[in-house]
């Protein structure tokens, strides 16, 4: 299993649009991807789950990757987060 933590810098937080982009990126991998805030974990492949966390600027999320392509997924999503959120 791979994981990393990330603090959101986008002033709008994880809004609908970036949530959609994140889900789209996550769906490109077969491994199980979870995004968690304050101990509450949601599937990174389901937009309602991601938006349901209502992550705002300055909040920390933990992303975990579990499965065959976890290495690649972790790198790709980390890059996505840095570029977009």
């Amino acid at each position: 299993m791979k994981k990393f933590k990330y603090v959101i810098t986008d002033p709008e937080g994880i809004h609908a649009r970036p949530a959609g982009m994140l889900v789209k990126a996550a769906k490109g991998f077969t491994c199980d991807i979870k995004i968690a805030k304050d101990g509450k974990a949601m599937s990174g492949k389901a937009i309602f789950g991601v938006m349901g966390l209502a992550v705002k600027k300055g909040e920390e999320v933990t992303l975990t990757f579990d499965g065959a392509d976890e290495e690649a997924a972790c790198e790709a999503i980390r890059k996505f987060m840095q570029e977009n959120l």
Partner: peptide, 19 residues
């Protein structure tokens, strides 16, 4: 693109596994 994105989000919502 910025204004169109909402329809892409709607597609994802429609395809959301929990939903």
């Amino acid at each position: 693109e910025a204004n169109a994105a909402i329809f892409e989000v709607h597609q994802m919502m429609l395809d959301d596994s929990d939903y």
